[in-house]
Write a protein that binds this DNA or RNA. Structure first.
Lengths: 337, 337
DNA sequence: CTGAAAGCGCTTACAG
DNA sequence: CTGAAAGCGCTTACAG
């Protein structure tokens, strides 16, 4: 990289002159027109780019703390909005003067994110949706960068998790109380850590409650509305489809719902459905029919992440903390009380 | 702010020792345990935070270019997802090694954003959804920071705008061709620059086509599903409600649709609706009934912003450019062909 | 009108 | 085991 020195040498002037000219203070300082031109040309020739660190250092500007939010660049980008609003909302509420950096990464490749190790770039990092491999990496990672895990648990980092055991149990019990003996399951084909845990929890509760979920009525599809369309089609092709559906994703449920209504299948009369509400809550609220969900408190979880980040940054010796935010079972038209 | 010098003074050692200890290289360098403790204590006492600029400068790390994306912190946060995915998608596609910073601001207060003037913090800024006042500010702003306006036009900056004149005209013509003489209008109460322009364009086309939009059938509501609920209720309370509805926001349309279906009003039999699709396209696609929209090409617009940003950063003398991306009229159940 | 020099806060060879 | 010194790239008084 060319520095101001190189430019000065090429233009045959001092670095001071270069600095002045390049910062538009040439006229003000009455630098000769010819000199200015030489400097400009030299800068262009060398492709000179000022080094911002040097500038900042010189200006001794107090830097704002920077919080990096890591989120994988895949379908779950849809879940980002409610988290992002939560993060920003809390930042505004606390009047916390910081920069929020959105860093996207690829699952299983969190170890390629240099900045998690070169800990000086950020004041804190919030990491969302790491895969199993990413979690293993995080477990072994040595870094001074304070890390907050979003909806994942690791003893060594701060964590903010949703607590959905009891609403999930209630959901299953509600279905059996309504007389359902069998249920169908829609779930995202990419089985991430948490959805995996949720799934086994669900299967466990179902067994406990005597709700049978047969192998051939478990549909694994892409976590998108299109995926939901496919799940619904498979469901409709079953010989004796169960009248209850559990969907691990609200996005899938919305896609499925569009097919059901097109095929004249009415909820809750013909089918009853409960989904995990992971995305924007208004999606399931204003769906038609509206969806019963176990709503993940993304917004509140995000707020907690910021709260923790702020305390880490502002309070020396802020102790490691693990927070749990309860999910809520919200019953609507697709499976009323 | 305490510096490493202050810590060194308090601990009674040199700055080198402080640096070593604080960077965890104490053991490695065999710094006496007692010395280390003194340093640690001193640092804690003074609340020492390393200056990242100094660190970066020292390390002479080539900095990644930083692109700041400014978006107002209000309801339109819902529109962020599709833009954000577009931005990230293009960054990935181009293998463009940069940092994307999401900066939220308050409308009418863009002038309070220091970093737009202190141009050395970012390599480029993409500004979304500025208000009239913000636009005036931008018009007068002097900065060396390259700025790209998202869906706003100003001669002096790079711009990427949606072009929705022709789909809008087609939408209006479709309604009149179907025999509609009157239409109802739902629009967000916060009339931002562009929605304002769209609105007057719409009114103009409607007049041209002989589609009457009466004063009492224009409903201004919050730009949210809840706002749509209110608009729908007002619509239902009209004596002779027009059978055509134009909604300036898809979010409002979704809220309204939920009320219509609850009240047994069927689209397109009882009402026909066309909305501006501003948010995530799958929302209107998978709504029930699915929504006819004039779809703003947010994703593509975002891609163009990144493309421009990259060229600005990498190509010296990249000329000012103004791009227009056409919107598309997509007809679905709420107002079929 | 232009240059030499100091200094922003840090890290890292290099002495001792 | 610890300190003095150089240097990262820039800007800004201060001379001349």
């Amino acid at each position: 990289m060319a520095t101001i020195k190189d430019v000065a040498a090429l233009a045959g002037v001092s670095t001071a002159t270069v600095s002045l000219v390049l910062n538009g203070r040439g006229q003000e300082m009455k630098v000769a027109e010819a000199t200015q031109q030489r400097v400009l040309t030299a800068a262009k020739t060398l492709g000179y780019k000022p080094n911002t660190s040097a500038r900042k250092l010189q200006a001794s500007k107090a830097e704002k703390p920077t919080i990096a939010f890591y989120w994988p660049m895949d379908l779950r980008i849809n879940y980002l909005t409610s988290i992002l609003t939560g993060l920003r909302a809390e930042i505004e509420k606390l009047h916390f003067d910081c920069e929020l950096l959105i860093c996207t990464y690829h699952n299983d490749h969190l170890d390629e994110e240099q900045d998690l190790m070169d800990s000086y770039r950020y004041s804190a990092a919030i990491i969302g949706a790491p895969s199993e491999a990413d979690m293993n990496y995080l477990q072994t990672l040595k870094t001074r960068l304070p890390i907050i895990l979003f909806n994942r648990y690791l003893e060594k980092y701060h964590t903010v998790c949703s607590q959905d055991e009891s609403p999930l149990r209630n959901a299953v019990n509600l279905l059996t109380a309504k007389g359902h003996m069998r249920a169908c399951l829609f779930h995202p084909d990419s089985l991430y850590t948490v959805s995996g845990k949720r799934l086994s929890m669900l299967l466990h509760f179902a067994e406990e409650a005597g709700l049978s979920i047969e192998r051939n009525s478990i549909f694994s599809v892409e976590d998108s509305c299109d995926g939901g369309v496919i799940a619904a089609r498979r469901y409709l092709s079953l010989d004796h489809p169960p009248r209850a559906i559990l969907s691990m994703s609200d996005t899938i449920a919305i896609g499925a719902s569009s097919i059901f209504s097109r095929k004249g299948l009415v909820m809750p009369t013909d089918v009853e459905l409960i989904a995990f509400g992971i995305g924007d809550p208004s999606l399931s609220h204003f769906a038609n029919p509206s969806l019963s969900v176990i709503e993940m408190p993304s917004h509140e979880m995000a707020e907690n992440c910021i709260d923790i980040a702020r305390q880490i940054i502002q309070t020396p010796d802020f102790p490691l903390c693990h927070r749990q935010i309860p999910s809520k079972l919200i019953l609507r038209e697709s499976c009323p009380e």
